[in-house]
């Protein structure tokens, strides 16, 4: 019997609902494996659109998908892979103000995100509501996986304080070998199947470097003084504390204004002055200014590429968008 799964295990997997936050390199690999394993339902959440430099490591996407929504494109491909799985998609940025409505009713959260603040929101929600989640992260030739299931430590036991900007290398400064998200996602999905079947699963943090052929399982302890799982203070779920300016994995800066109204992109486009290469469609408005590429989405989210730091991004934001 393969890995102790059997017909009972398969039945249990196909009755479960999984939500995947982030459909990038990790996320598309995770979705591919989960759907082929036959989970009952999979919800894909991603705010982004496919770009040409995603294609070398983000499976499920091809050249004809450039400019299309990641979550919707992935969902369409996945439906053609396994029509027995109910596949749903959302073009949304998961954050403290909307995680509950996205994740409610799901049995497991899979991490396909590319930044620490988003993972802290997932961690707080998951610990508070007692939903298991599987963290995965990649960098260079290395990857990490950890199950957060209530029995062991949570992500804030591992990372009690957010690293300062520049303290840890990013995918931008180090790159990611395209085999790394594949193996990391494979480990995450193996753990997911064990959790969904109620079997014993990995305790601790698995860390590996597939270039150096190093694999380590760090079995560190739950911190009784952990602000999240110990003291149950869920600061990342407090919308007032929501970090509205985030540095993304590729070095670009994202600014999310508060509120839920939608932007009239055509109206904004008509008002812009001194910008180049402007493109507008109902979902997004793109332009270049001062050598930086600015993209504004319908939900008023702005991504600035090449800004370098949050201050410059903020100044471009207020200068050109006056928001």
């Amino acid at each position: 019997m393969m890995g102790d799964i059997g017909p009972e295990g398969q039945k249990s997997i196909s009755s479960k609902k999984v939500v995947l936050i982030g459909c990038g390199a990790l996320g598309t690999n995770i979705a591919n494996l989960l759907v082929r394993a036959g989970v009952g339902e999979l919800l894909l959440v991603d705010r982004d659109f496919v770009e040409i430099d995603n294609l070398h490591r983000q499976v499920l996407f091809s050249e004809r998908d450039i400019g299309e929504s990641k979550s919707e494109t992935a969902a369409a491909i996945l439906r053609s892979i396994n029509s027995e799985v109910s596949i749903k998609s959302l073009i949304k940025d998961m954050m403290s103000s909307n995680i509950a409505e996205m994740v409610k009713g799901y049995d497991l959260i899979m991490d396909g995100t590319d930044n620490i603040p988003a993972r802290m929101v997932i961690n707080d929600y998951a610990v508070k509501e007692d939903v298991p989640w599987v963290y995965g992260g990649v960098l260079g030739t290395g990857g990490m996986v950890m199950n957060i299931t209530g029995e062991g430590p949570c992500l804030r036991c591992l990372l009690p304080e957010l690293p300062e900007q520049g303290d840890i290398p990013t995918c931008e400064t180090m790159g990611v070998l395209n085999t790394v998200p594949a193996i990391t996602a494979a480990v995450q999905v193996t753990e997911a199947l064990k959790i969904l079947m109620g079997k014993d699963h990995m305790k601790g943090l698995l860390q590996f470097d597939i270039w150096k052929n190093e694999f380590n399982l760090h079995e560190f302890r739950k911190d009784p003084k952990c602000e999240c799982c110990g003291k149950r203070e869920f600061v990342y779920l407090n919308e007032d504390n929501e970090e509205v300016v985030t540095q993304l994995c590729d070095g670009s800066i994202q600014i999310v204004p508060s509120g839920t109204s939608e932007a009239d992109l055509k109206l904004i486009a008509g008002k812009l002055k001194g910008v180049e290469n402007m493109k507008v469609n109902p979902f997004r408005l793109e332009f270049e200014v001062e050598g930086k590429k600015v993209t504004i989405f319908k939900d008023r989210r702005v991504i600035i590429k090449g800004a370098g730091d949050k201050g410059i991004a903020r100044s471009i934001y207020s200068k050109f968008l006056g928001l």
């Binding site: 993972r119 992260g137 860390q207 994995c249």
Partner: peptide
């Protein structure tokens, strides 16, 4: 002592 590089990419 174990040193762990946190990985935030995805």
């Amino acid at each position: 002592i174990e040193l762990i590089q946190f990985m935030g990419g995805g």
